[in-house]
Design a protein around this nucleic acid. Sequence first.
DNA 1: AATGTCACCAACCGCCTAAAG
DNA 2: TCTTTAGGCGGTTGGTGACAT
Length: 286
Amino acid sequence: MNIAKTLGVRKGSWTEDEDILLRKCIDKYGEGKWHLVPFRAGLNRCRKSCRLRWLNYLRPHIKRGDFALDEIDLILRLHKLLGNRQIKNFVKKYLKIIVHIYIHEKWSLIAGRLPGRTANDVKNYWNTHLHKKLLITPPQIQENKYNNTLKIITESTILRPRPRPGPQPRTFSSENNISWCTNNSMITNTLDKDDEQHNKEIAVNICEKPTKKTPSSSIDDDGVQWWTNLLENWKEFEEEATAVLNFEEENKLLPNLLYEEHNSTTMQHGENDDFSVDIDLWNLFN
DNA sequence: AATGTCACCAACCGCCTAAAG
DNA sequence: TCTTTAGGCGGTTGGTGACAT
């Protein structure tokens, strides 16, 4: 039986005193062992509540307030790649595996690339801002966005998810024109305050398309492009992926949606059950 | 001023996975 | 091998404040 339930733990908003107790406890004992935290801190809260309060609110360097344009841009592009749960049609064998592996950590993955942002923040922002706006986007804009997205996301813009614990944040520029270097390309974000339509579409131009796969850069030890790794270790990955796929198919472990490949029909852009992925990724599988 | 509606976001819930016993 | 426990996640809810009527 859950002891916490029998004791009638407190729920709802946290008070300042509770925050202080929790902060002192984490300062003293460090993160982890969440089941001990209520006792150690003298809090009448369950372990999950303590953990969530710490991770989403009290943890140092949590960034609050409005999301910057470059953060929104990144959320949109990562969500485009990771976020569409309605997967069906023409999903290729290996793509299934990638989606299966990475899709379950969508929000934490995206948050991992946004310094100071928590998965909860990103999720809330998506649900209250971006998702609605995308749903009401007129067809012609949707079409443009779709086309843009096909072009803008390249292997150079996607970073491999890092192992826990903790993301290693990318540094954002404070300018409207955002550019950053990866090991084989330069990306510039051409957001323009005066161009509303442009901002809506959050277009990103690729200044220099990568032509060569190179080893990881020194920018960020864990910012190694997982695309690069994937390509470099393709044989190994292929064997592993095949084994996983076979096992999961034999044991019916893959989500049903992933089995609908054979029922695929011609799909139009903009349909809700469409599965979209960036063109460079798609080309890898053709 | 009172009421209704909406947006925001902190917090909760239920589920999954991995590790330990 | 099975069960229990802890950590972690995405989805959802509900309180609150801002704004509109």
